[in-house]
Structure formats: C-alpha cells, structure tokens
Design a protein around this nucleic acid. Sequence first.
DNA 1: CTCCTTACACTTTTTGAGGATCTGTCCGGA
DNA 2: TCCGGACAGATCCTCAAAAAGTGTAAGGAG
Lengths: 200, 200
Amino acid sequence: MTRYRESVRSLLRERLLDAAYERVTVDGWSRLRMSHIAATAGVSRQTVYSEFGTRDAIGQALVMREVDRFLLGVQEQFDAHRSDPHAAVEAAVLFTLRTAADNPLVKSILTSSRGGDDDLIAHLTTRSEPLLDTATTMLDAYGADAWPEIDPESRALAVETVVRLTVSHIVQPTLPPDLTATRLARILSRIALLPDPHQS
Amino acid sequence: MTRYRESVRSLLRERLLDAAYERVTVDGWSRLRMSHIAATAGVSRQTVYSEFGTRDAIGQALVMREVDRFLLGVQEQFDAHRSDPHAAVEAAVLFTLRTAADNPLVKSILTSSRGGDDDLIAHLTTRSEPLLDTATTMLDAYGADAWPEIDPESRALAVETVVRLTVSHIVQPTLPPDLTATRLARILSRIALLPDPHQS
DNA sequence: CTCCTTACACTTTTTGAGGATCTGTCCGGA
DNA sequence: TCCGGACAGATCCTCAAAAAGTGTAAGGAG
C-alpha cells in the first residue's frame, strides 16, 4: 500500500519536473512561474507547493536530476569501452559535447555561464560548481580501476586536461563534435602515454 | 613640422587612453564619462571628441592597445627562449596567467566573460573574439619558424591545446600560476612529442 | 487522505512620468 | 588648435503606483 503511494508521488514529481524543464528551456528560469508548472502538469498550484515547498526547491531538484542523468550517461560511455581507454575518452567526450549542444540546462551547468536572465545558475553554485570536481574525481577513480597500468600522475594529468578541454570546446566550438572528440582522444593518449591507434 | 604635429597628437591620444584606462579599471566602462576623461587628462571635452569622435571609438582603441601590448608581451617570452620550446611555453603561459590576474581588462578580453555592468566586452566581439584566433595563429607561425623540426600537425594540436588550457586556467584556477605553467609545459611537450626535461 | 478552489498577507516586478545626466555637434573667442 | 558655452536628442535615474507572484491557510469534493 505504501509502495503505491510512493509510486504515485514520484510519478507526480517527475511530471512536475518535466513541466518545469519544458518551461525553463524555453523561457529561462526567471520567467518560470509556479502557476505555469501547475497548468502544464495539469494539477493545481497548491499541489506543486505541497510537493516541493518552494520554487527554489524545484530549481534544486531540476539541476540535480539533470546532473545525475548526465553523469550516468558519461559512465555508460566508459562502461562501453572498458578495455580501450582511447575509445572510452572519445565516446565520453562526444557524448558530453552532444549533450551540451542540445540540452541547454546541462550546458549552463557545465559552463556556469553567468549572465543571461537565468539565475538558475545560482542554485548551481551549491550543486554544480562542484560538478566539474565530481566529474574529475569520478573519471579518475574510474580510470584507476579500469586501467591500473597507467601511471597515476599521468592519469590525473590526463583526466584534468580532458575535462578542461571538453568544457573549452563547449564554450568555443571549432570543429564538429565528432572530430573534436577524436582530436581530444588523441591528445589524451599522448599525455597518458598510451598507444595511439591512429598514430600517423 | 608634420613630424611634430603627429608626435603631439599621439602623445595626446596616449594621455587620453591612460585617463580612460584609469577610470575604467576603477569604475568599469559603463560608468566612464567623456567629461571624466577630459578632466583627468587635463583637456576639454571637445578635444576628446575631436580626437576620437565617439565614446565607442575610445573603447575600441583601449581594447586594441591592451591586446597589442599583451601579444607583444607573449612574443617577448618566446623570444627569450627561442632555443627551448618547453621553456618558451612555460614562460608564455606564466606571463599570460599573471597578466590576466592583475590586468582586469586583459582578463575580460581573454575570457569574454559576459555579464558584469561592463559592456566594454561588446567592442571585443569586433576585435577580441578573434583574439584567441590571432594568438593561436601567431603562436603557430612563431613555432613553425623557431622550431621547424616539430611535425606541423603535432605543433598545431599543441598550440591550440595550450591556448585553450591557459584560458581554462584563467577562468578556473586551481594551482598557483607558476605550477600551472609548469604543468602545461609538460603536457605540451608530450603532445608535440618533445623531450621533456622534467620527465620523471 | 488527496487534491481542488478560494482567499489573503507579503514580497518582488513592471510600469510610467519627470527630471537629471550624457552624448555628439556647432560656434565664437583666445 | 584648443577652450568654453550652448543645445537638441538620447539615455539613464528615481520613485511611487499598479500588477503579478510567492507562500500559507481554510473549507469542500471525491
């Protein structure tokens, strides 16, 4: 019985977050109104309040959900290439670039681009400024586990570098994502002193 | 005679730009008034207008002068280490990080950080968005001339990478500038397949 | 018990009119 | 050449009234 309640409740939460997300990506956080969320989700304003309490809590939940999804996606790319660091980096970078390209929320979280009328970023500073740290730590731990043969210092250097370069390419793209991913993978191979399959 | 006129004129221009610079670094571009510049430089407002025409032109000139000085500084670092690419990169990165740290104008030009009340950045889009391109091109040409033994593709990759990483460290510093410069030089050596004097 | 409607106090945004300030230009005098 | 003064037009404050939004609460329906 309690199981049923929780199921309904989390369904409602997702529905509300979906509604909020839709509005945010179109109008920006500042123009999002509680009544919009309620209307889009087909519930009353009060239901939104009883679920989240405040508007800020919705922003928090929105950011958290997006961050979790993104990090999960990155992990999946790595899992798909456990035996091949070069391919893993290429896949993860490509995934990140593509996500940033068509997910404005993730993009602003990753780049913390100030400005715009979008103060959703304010919620990030609590949760997303550490995002790059979290990602870096995650990748480092993952790398240590999956590829113990690489020397630790080189690995740390490589991880930090790929994170910075990826963000750089989000902020200022030059080549198409897939080519960028290839280039970054090559750079990383050299830094971590890996064999580069595409070496000329 | 004409020589004298030009000399006086360029002296006046410098004086006015100095005055503008001083105000801008304190109050920001938006709060800079033509009358301030005139007063600080000890001339009349009309003299400022007859020299620059518009307020925007002053912003343009200010940005140009700063960019030129910065680029010259980078060149000097390279010239000082013509025989040693590794040391050249380290010196140039360190110079850039330090300049960015205590020259707010250069920093905002390099990072194009929008926001703030400082729309001086707007003038950049004409002149400074290409700054990174200019810097990259300059470094590439310099590298080709000074170190022809490095293979061109690796060199291009290395140059683009060091530019992006340097900007990244300006935006999000972690270690002190000198350590960062050392690390970047090491990374670059590996990408360009150079001998690394500090190899462990 | 959950959700809806309605209502209400409080805070934050938007709006608009008025004045002040600033830009860019012109001219007469030194 | 430069300065001082003057001027039209644009832009930027200021500040108070009105509008809209947040968060809380009570009563009713299923």
